[in-house]
Nucleic acid binder design. Structure first.
Lengths: 170, 170
DNA sequence: AATGTCAAGTCAACCTGCCTGACCATCTGG
DNA sequence: CCAGATGGTCAGGCAGGTTGACTTGACATT
């Protein structure tokens, strides 16, 4: 049937070159494990999307707009995530003394405990991964992922940050 | 303030151990590039979710239920994705001659052309990545990702020892 | 043949995780 | 002091799923 355009060996080739699939699989697995462990530590109600806030929130607090920009999403979307984390008691909004329009999002004490747990959890999960593929392979995997992600951010960034460039790139 | 639980060096440690962040970043980037290239080849209307169908659909066709199981989602969710791809002309539903309840989802000619393009696209995108981190690093990255994804699937699979499973085709 | 159970697929309703558009308040430069 | 940019919110919509209830057909037992 239909030998015209694609054959079994092509499918093999496809799955070999489709790096996106294992990438998303592993990313989902990591999130699932992290949330399960957080829930085990009493942090219930956390959702995958909240990591966009947590991983971009500095210790001294960060403006909503900056959070949105770092996470590459809209102010509204980020605002909703911050609302949820605020209700859960992990962050709070305080007025920015230098700009009355702005509010600074910062961790509460509970939020800082969350971060401490997050560090332990991340290491624990990586221990599980290391058990599957070996410690050395995991380390090179992590390093290469960081390098690639960094290179992607660089190449996607506007080449002239000074100019109010209208985001022409795809 | 609040020196109790977390400090700046801890944040560094967190981002170093948070393998999930670069993982999801890169996965999204790959999807974005793939869809953009597909659109450039005349395949408009494709969406990220459709890969769940495309990457799990065998050449001879696959049942909806099998697709759903392989993609780890519900039959209903998969049914909607198949509906969309059917309207776009990439797949078709044909009755299963061995079971009147079932329908077999299979590629149309247009769908097979899509797969051919997909192979080229995947290789092209990986070429771009190789330009960023080097060909050798990319290869080890891909291999390690495959290994880890495979190991995760194995360890997540029910430890059920080979019951007389009929219809384990493809 | 009647029956009970299970598998394949669909319909409807809902939820999450964003996005766009419209808007107000405030800041800033000329 | 006013125009325009910026920080943030409110409202609505769309994508990509979920659960639950259901229909149809397969099949094993009786």
């Amino acid at each position: 049937m239909a030998r015209s355009s694609i054959r079994a060996q092509d499918l093999e080739r496809f799955s070999r070159t489709n790096i996106g699939q294992p990438l998303t699989e592993i990313a989902k697995d990591f999130q699932r494990r992290a949330l399960a462990r957080f829930a085990g530590h009493g942090h219930k109600g956390l959702q995958p999307a909240h990591t966009a806030v947590i991983t971009n929130l500095g210790l001294e607090g960060t403006r909503l707009t900056d959070l949105a920009r770092r996470a590459a999403m809209t102010k509204q979307g980020m605002g909703q995530l911050v609302d949820e984390l605020e209700h859960l008691g992990y962050v709070e909004r305080t007025p920015d003394p230098t700009d009355n329009r702005a509010k600074i999002v910062r961790f509460t004490r509970r939020g800082r405990r969350l971060m401490s747990h997050g560090i332990e959890l991340g290491e624990a999960i990586q221990g599980e991964y290391a058990r599957l593929i070996g410690r050395r392979h995991l380390k090179t995997l992590r390093d290469t992922l960081e390098d690639l992600a960094h290179a992607l951010r660089e190449s996607a960034a506007p080449p002239r940050p000074a100019r109010t460039r209208r985001r022409s790139g795809v």
